[in-house]
Design a protein around this nucleic acid. Structure first.
Lengths: 334, 334
DNA sequence: TATCAATATGACAACGCTATCATACGACGC
DNA sequence: GCGTCGTATGATAGCGTTGTCATATTGATA
């Protein structure tokens, strides 16, 4: 059914190798020949077999994206961004869910590479910080780029946003609104971003001369129910916070639900802010003030780094943005 | 670096072909030989090259999942379900975003097949109903399974839920609560599920002896803002509905936002229900009564059909479930 | 014992492409 | 006119598997 390079060469009246040259845009092909070949390719609607290319050549025209279970929204943004760049490059993308905490992670990645011979790998957080994974890739000499890595910053190229600064900005915004007691819900312990956001929160308090009070900081796990739990504890305090900063939107939704359940009005009785600007943020009531994380663009840029700067280590930092919606206001005079 | 079948055969002291037999679980290999080969495979941590297998054999050990831009949540469920089944089968999954409305869809699918030689394809709605795509697959004799197809029911194996019955159930539930004026927000015109859910709504009204009133039905597009728009129109009616049934959760969130914005209390002043039971549904305030669509299970079952029943056309219907949360109550006495 | 089917293994070609090397042609400088 | 270089093309050998066919061994049956 499908045509091969041989068919093309027969129609174009040249050798297989010349067709191969045209396909790979190699030098030393005359204009005239190239046109003849291209016409034959179009006529047969010929697509080179990826399998044969991999076997014969050094490149596989495939890269892998390895991610762990974030929110569907996050994964989707990451996939879409990487995908877009791959299309431009004519490279196939293998999307690979994984478990960053699994002891088999390195073996699985090794297997993936042996099986598919991918040309490069993109790791998204938190797989970015699994030591075994990085080692495996380096041992095999597979180029890789990390999206929002938390550790070993200089070990590979990466793209990221400034989580510390973003959390600082958001906290400062709440302080500027007049809040003095600001609750904070930390993210999942696996993710370095969690620490960074917490650090940004503390830095902003510091700069404003406000004391850091451990009782206003609650652990969370980036999911709705941990946001609910943290919100309940914070609002049960004798001196409850007038604003709560959750490290992501899902947890902010949990806080919001707790507030509603208690009959509190947001933002009159309590300001709530999140982080990420997922679809959820604008669909909640009230719409959530949050930090827009440029996830899709990060992913696009990561793929770009993989294709362009093969050798040198490059870091690209993309700007974040405060998205002010209706879930924040000044604290109520009490 | 990576070892080949030759290395394995040398260590095990058998021919390449025998190693191949063990790998593919073919008959006629003695227990003793199998063990020797398996030990050699483990020792070298050997993984067969997918590329070589494709080239030499008839199978590629890869299937493709083709989807169009639904909600990230939906895609994620679909991917996860298919993925899980593929792992069990030792088959690699190529996830392929696409545009169901594109005139190039068939060409793109053809290219995908030529390039990757996938063994089978899973189509998720609404790509399920793109005539060109089906034709292309049939012409090439590639087995395919559809998830929630809307047309040409007998053309291929498929998995689906009963959208008509589910919408009927939900509408009947609202009627049982005492509602008589029930608004309905239709889904995206591309999706056959949209029509089916509308039909189920009408059927339930019919059964209850309630008149169908076109003014209570508004178009939508499965996204938040179309839900908002529809909600606004419905609530502006001189005799506004006491309950609104949105064809998916995103649109229901839009309706909820409109209600909040108008200072209405849900469910006291208005009942709102959705469809799908996405993560969003339980994170909204109030938590949304909705239909649980078994998306992940549908996807898992679809992959199962692809692997098991290669030839015959099989349809699997999975049960839905009404999820009753806090967004519904009886209408207010007025 | 001869015959046959079932079981068990191996030799070798083939899959569709790229890498390597060889070859041919003109243009150029001396 | 001859070597040399840059350009343009082709012949052929793999890449790592599986398919095909051949062959050997066993046990059951005639």
């Amino acid at each position: 059914m499908a045509s091969t390079i041989k068919d093309v060469s027969a129609i174009a009246g040249v050798s297989m190798k010349t067709v191969s040259r045209v396909l790979n845009k190699e030098r030393y092909v005359s204009e005239k020949t190239r046109l003849r070949v291209e016409r034959a390719v179009a006529e047969l609607n010929f697509r080179p077999s990826v399998a044969a290319r991999i076997l014969a050549g050094k490149r596989s025209y495939q890269i892998a994206l390895i991610y762990d279970n974030h929110s569907p929204h996050y994964i989707h943004q990451i996939q879409t961004g990487v995908w877009a760049r791959c299309i431009e490059e004519g490279v196939r993308l293998l999307a690979q869910p994984s478990d960053a905490a699994s002891p088999n992670l390195a073996r699985e990645i090794g297997g993936l590479i042996d099986q598919t011979q991918v040309d490069g790998v993109i790791l998204s957080s938190p797989v970015t910080d699994a030591p075994g994974a990085l080692e495996e890739l380096e041992q095999r000499g597979i180029p890789y780029v990390r999206i929002s890595p938390g550790t070993d910053y200089d070990r590979s190229s990466s793209v990221s946003m400034d989580d510390v600064q973003a959390a600082d900005d958001m906290t400062s915004h709440l302080i500027a609104l007049g809040h003095r007691r600001i609750g904070f819900v930390v993210g999942h312990a696996n993710h370095t971003a969690s620490d960074q956001r917490l650090f940004g929160y503390r830095r902003a308090l510091d700069k404003a001369g406000l004391a850091f009070e451990p009782k206003y900081v609650r652990p969370g796990a980036f999911d709705f129910s941990s946001g609910e739990a943290a919100g309940d504890v914070l609002l049960d305090l004798s001196q409850p916070p007038t604003a709560i900063f959750a490290s992501n939107d899902d947890m902010a939704a949990g806080v919001l639900t707790v507030a509603h359940r208690r009959g509190m009005s947001v933002p009159r009785d309590l300001s709530v802010v999140g982080f990420d600007d997922t679809a959820l943020a604008s669909q909640l009531w009230p719409p959530l003030t949050t930090v827009r994380q440029p996830t899709r663009d990060l992913a696009y840029a990561a793929a770009g780094l993989l294709f362009d700067a093969a050798d040198e280590v490059v870091h690209r930092r993309l700007p974040h943005e405060l998205v002010l919606r209706a879930s924040t206001a000044g604290p109520r005079k009490s």
